[in-house]
Lab assay of single mutants.
Amino acid sequence: GKKITDLRVIDLKSELKRRNLDITGVKTVLISRLKQAIEEEGGDPDNIEL
C-alpha cells in the first residue's frame, strides 16, 4: 500500500470520486478529506491500496 500523503492529486481525486466525495480544493484539503473517509471505513490512511 501507499501512504495517503504519497498520492498525486489525480489519485486523490479518483479515490474521492469513487466514494462520491467532493474533489475540489488544494492537495492538503483533498488529503484530509480522503483521510477522514478512510478512517471512517476502518482503513489505514498510511497503507492504502489503489
Score class of each variant (00 low, 15 high):
Gly1Leu: 03
Gly1Cys: 06
Gly1Ile: 15
Gly1Arg: 01
Lys2His: 14
Lys2Val: 08
Lys2Arg: 05
Lys2Gly: 02
Lys3Pro: 07
Lys3Met: 07
Lys3Thr: 06
Lys3Gln: 07
Lys3Gly: 08
Lys3Ile: 02
Ile4Trp: 00
Ile4Tyr: 03
Thr5Asn: 13
Thr5Asp: 12
Asp6Lys: 10
Asp6Gly: 07
Asp6Glu: 14
Asp6Met: 08
Leu7Cys: 11
Leu7Pro: 01
Arg8Thr: 07
Arg8Met: 12
Arg8Gln: 04
Val9Leu: 09
Val9Ala: 06
Val9Trp: 05
Ile10Asn: 03
Ile10Ser: 05
Ile10Pro: 15
Ile10Leu: 07
Asp11Arg: 00
Asp11Gln: 12
Asp11Asn: 04
Asp11Ala: 02
Asp11Tyr: 02
Asp11Glu: 04
Asp11Ser: 01
Asp11Leu: 02
Asp11His: 10
Leu12Trp: 01
Leu12Ile: 11
Leu12Ala: 03
Lys13Met: 08
Lys13Ile: 15
Lys13Tyr: 09
Lys13Phe: 07
Lys13Ala: 06
Ser14Glu: 13
Glu15Met: 14
Glu15Arg: 00
Leu16Cys: 04
Leu16Ala: 01
Lys17Met: 13
Lys17Cys: 03
Lys17Asn: 10
Arg18Val: 07
Arg19Phe: 01
Arg19Leu: 02
Arg19His: 02
Arg19Tyr: 01
Arg19Ala: 00
Arg19Asn: 00
Asn20Ile: 00
Asn20Asp: 09
Asn20Gly: 14
Leu21Ile: 08
Leu21Val: 06
Leu21Ala: 04
Asp22Glu: 07
Asp22Ser: 11
Asp22Cys: 03
Asp22Thr: 06
Ile23Arg: 09
Ile23Gln: 14
Ile23Trp: 09
Ile23Met: 15
Ile23Tyr: 10
Thr24Ser: 15
Thr24Cys: 15
Gly25Cys: 04
Val26Gln: 11
Val26Glu: 11
Val26Thr: 14
Val26Tyr: 08
Lys27Cys: 02
Lys27Asp: 09
Lys27Tyr: 14
Thr28Ile: 12
Thr28Gly: 12
Val29Gln: 14
Val29Asn: 12
Val29Thr: 15
Val29Pro: 03
Leu30Ala: 05
Leu30Thr: 03
Leu30Asn: 04
Ile31Trp: 05
Ile31Gly: 05
Ile31Leu: 12
Ile31Glu: 13
Ile31Lys: 05
Ile31Asp: 10
Ser32Ala: 14
Ser32Val: 06
Ser32Tyr: 06
Arg33Leu: 01
Arg33Ser: 04
Arg33Met: 04
Arg33Tyr: 00
Arg33Trp: 00
Arg33Gln: 01
Arg33Ile: 03
Leu34Met: 05
Leu34Asp: 04
Leu34Ser: 03
Leu34Lys: 03
Lys35Leu: 11
Lys35Tyr: 04
Gln36His: 09
Gln36Glu: 08
Gln36Leu: 14
Ile38Phe: 00
Ile38His: 01
Ile38Glu: 03
Ile38Cys: 10
Ile38Asp: 07
Glu39Met: 10
Glu39Phe: 06
Glu39Trp: 11
Glu39Pro: 00
Glu40Val: 13
Glu40Trp: 04
Glu40Met: 14
Glu41Ser: 10
Glu41Leu: 01
Glu41Trp: 00
Glu41Cys: 05
Glu41Gly: 09
Glu41Asp: 09
Glu41Pro: 01
Glu41Gln: 07
Gly42Thr: 06
Gly42Asp: 10
Gly42Gln: 10
Gly42Cys: 08
Gly42Leu: 05
Gly42Val: 04
Gly42Phe: 03
Gly43Glu: 07
Asp44Ile: 06
Asp44His: 08
Asp44Trp: 02
Asp44Tyr: 05
Asp44Leu: 05
Asp44Gly: 03
Pro45His: 05
Pro45Trp: 08
Pro45Thr: 13
Pro45Val: 12
Asp46Gly: 12
Asp46Pro: 04
Asn47Glu: 10
Asn47Val: 10
Ile48Tyr: 14
Ile48Gly: 04
Ile48Glu: 08
Ile48Phe: 06
Glu49Ser: 12
Glu49His: 12
Leu50Ser: 10
Leu50Lys: 01
Leu50Cys: 12
Leu50Arg: 10
